[in-house]
Design a binder for these strands. Sequence first.
RNA 1: GGUGAGGUGGAUGAGUGGCUGAAAUCAGUAGUUUGCUAAACUGCCGUACGGGUUAAACUGUACCGCGGGUUCGAAUCCCGCCCUCACCGCCA
Length: 423
Amino acid sequence: MLQLHVLRQDTAGVKARLSKKHFADLDLVDAIIALDDERKKLQLSFDNNQSVVNSTSKEIGALMAKGQKEEAETKKGEVAALKATLQPITERLAIVEKQLHDELVKLPNLPAEGVPMGKTPEDNMVVREGGTKPALHEGALPHWDLIKKYDIIDFELGAKITGSGFPLYKGQGAKLQRALVQYFLDFNTAAGYTEFLPPFMVNEASAYGTGQLPDKEGQMYHMPADGFYMIPTSEVPVTNIFRDDIVKETSLPIKMTAYSPCFRREAGSFGKDVRGLNRVHQFEKVEIVQLTHPDKSYEAHTEMVLHIEKLLQSLELPYRVLALCGGDMSFTSALTYDFEVYSAAQERWLEVSSVSNFEAYQTNRMKIRFKDEKGKTQLVHSLNGSSLALPRIVASLLENNQTPEGINIPKVLQPYFGAAVIG
RNA sequence: GGUGAGGUGGAUGAGUGGCUGAAAUCAGUAGUUUGCUAAACUGCCGUACGGGUUAAACUGUACCGCGGGUUCGAAUCCCGCCCUCACCGCCA
């Protein structure tokens, strides 16, 4: 969530940036500031009253010790009267604090300087493209046919076992998953990211910390008996490692990577976009996360974008980098670059990575802080990016690398996969 | 799942109703001393929200797993929950 002092210091600027994100309820900003004013007033009057209660209680203790019962009883009466006046203040304060918080989390993160204007995916800006689109042979197939031809992924069986959107990987299909995960993790750890294998379910506090709750509740699978959520990305458990911590400034940046399956309900997604591997309920993903000094987060973002780009280049896939426009960025993000790979048979660009800088939006919720050289506590910045989401990489690999003889495996993957061709 | 023990500041750990926002030790940090390193000595050293100040100083309140309760007063007593550890049971 946004920091209150930002709203106070530059109310007009905040509103302008919220509009860039196509957030309509600008009056909410004023309402929040008004709530905070009330909160301060209540807090002050509570503190002053409580202060008297505390000191009087001490006097009572001293009187009792001296055996001056009568005087003590008089003081008790005073305290009781004070506490009676205190009660409505306390109650109101609790209401105002809750309200203030509930309203504050409704504000999305503010878009950064260079974020393009716009509302829909069409307004996203292509930053650059790389790789070359392949020329497919006569009779080339989309991946949903290729997986049947080579019997490597079975959607029907997955649906039988669980439901639609839960693919069953078989034989070389399963091994390809394992090879990709391992390759991605090795690529990330070689660049200084520490590997984690996190829990695949999280509690409410963690889901809240990264911003999945309260607004994206419907996107996650929920286990009501235990109050847990299946993770939609390992960003959630990994970023929460440092929840409520004050880290050493010298430990920044903290660079983490993790593999996990990801579970997404994708409620309300229908149509041609969802065919085959394009959109599924469970998929494999390797994620990178950084916690940085607030002055260094944009530098880190650039570094992460280049890192993902190198990874895609090593897979020899045609890709492009998009700067998301204000309206298409996620609620919590200040700057997002998406990576898309071209899937030649279906002639579509598929999103395989999203690299975002959340600035202090997530860390303000999670209270991840550091002490600067003046000893002042500050929030760190958090960033993350997929490196990478497997299904669409697989779709694109299958489609782009198909030949009449089989599917060619990129050189870098061959040691992991143990073969050069799926045939 | 059963039984028992326990959750206190970065760590260890004292503290069973007021003198405890919290001993002590370690770690950290600033300084003194010292050829260097090491050691010794001295000061500082939790978080949040306020008041106050140009900035400090100073100052109020809350917080000892979480939430309630008792009391003039709670880390300390009571209730509920969560978590950790040990043993037993079950099990990959």
